[in-house]
């Protein structure tokens, strides 16, 4: 871990992901509805709670020393209890329930019918992202349009994960055997961080992703570029790199469409067809750079102990060639 620290410090900035990641700074309609509900819940409960706490402190500090009236007036006390313990809480709770049900309806369905559907599959410990209508397969980075909802179909390849982009929407579990749906919409262009929210194993902590909201034209260009198969190596180094890639069994888990035939994956890893176009490595653990790529390939367990990728022993030449090949995957 220590080796990775200086790089990690800039991982999010390098990814263009800035500002707060808070559910209280929503950047899309679903998160905004829920933020509105939060303030209703907050003011609806905090006033009553604060008054009650003040009452308790008052009662304790006052410490009556003289005995009260001669008898306990049980009927008066019961009436007081029914007001403070039943009537007032019931009124508050019913109001909050109305607000809850309204918001639940709002966030259940997108405001307009989504034009784009994206499939996201959770893996230990990364995200497979597919655009079924465009033939795009990528990982850990979801590109969406600005100002229009997209439909996400969420599934899991192994254990339960939970898909969560705090600034855009509430979370949704990805349960094996089920396909759950969620819609996302971002108000303005930007990069929004998302993260797995259900314990999914030893690297649950470092299983993040990025949502990149782009204007339509940029998104269309991105989709078109991602749909293309990988470009054949153009330099000698990258051609040798492809050999290294095949020789060292990277093909067993990672597909590079157009260059290596998809195999029956032992443990499927992220599609690498356009690896170098991505902003980060290892599910937003490291910023994408030649140095980080080298460090990751040589010893993935140092950066993210317990992930499924084994270490690879390469000579310096082999490493250079492999990096040249991977950097060509744009």
């Amino acid at each position: 871990m220590t080796r990775a620290r200086p790089f990690i410090a800039s991982a999010l900035l390098a990814a263009g992901c800035q500002g707060p990641h808070s559910v209280l700074s929503p950047a899309g309609p679903a998160a905004r509805s829920i933020e509105g509900l939060w303030w209703v819940l907050f003011w609806g409960t905090i006033v009553a709670a604060a008054l009650t706490i003040v009452l308790i402190v008052f009662v304790v500090l006052r410490r009556r020393r003289v005995p009260g009236p001669g008898t306990v007036d049980a009927r008066r006390e019961d009436r007081w209890l029914l007001v403070t313990g039943v009537a007032i809480p019931a009124a508050i709770v019913l109001t909050l329930l109305v607000a809850t049900f309204r918001t639940a309806e709002q966030v259940a369905r997108p405001p307009t019918e989504p034009a784009l559907t994206i499939d996201v599959v959770g893996h230990q410990f990364w995200w497979e992202v597919r655009y079924p209508d465009h033939g795009v397969v990528t990982a850990n980075e979801i590109h969406i349009p600005v100002g229009r909802p997209v439909r996400l179909r969420l599934g899991s390849a192994d254990v339960i994960h939970s898909f969560w982009v705090p600034r855009l929407a509430g979370k949704m579990d990805m349960t094996p055997g089920h396909v759950t749906e969620l819609w996302l919409e971002a108000d303005s262009p930007g990069v929004y961080r998302g993260q797995c929210a259900e314990l999914c194993g030893v690297q649950h902590a470092l299983m993040a992703f990025l949502v990149v909201a782009q204007p339509d034209a940029e998104l269309a260009a991105w989709l078109e570029a991602q749909a293309r198969p990988a470009a054949a190596p153009v330099t000698d180094a990258s051609a040798r790199g492809l050999t290294v890639y095949r020789q060292f069994d990277c093909v067993a888990c990672h597909a590079v469409r157009g260059l290596t035939r998809p195999q029956q994956a032992r443990a499927p890893g992220p599609d690498l067809t356009h690896l170098s176009s991505r902003r980060t490595l290892a599910a937003v653990t490291l910023p994408m750079s030649r140095g980080n790529l080298a460090g990751w390939i040589l010893d993935p367990q140092a950066h993210k102990p317990g992930n499924r990728m084994p270490a690879t022993t390469l000579t310096p030449d082999q490493l250079h060639d492999l990096l040249a090949f991977l950097e060509g995957l744009r």
Binding site: L37, W38, F42, T45, T100, T103, A104, A169, G170
Partner: peptide, 14 residues
């Protein structure tokens, strides 16, 4: 009470 409200819970759950 806040967590009982299901839309809010989807944000802060887990």
């Amino acid at each position: 009470i806040m967590l009982a409200s299901q839309p809010f819970d989807t944000q802060v759950h887990d």
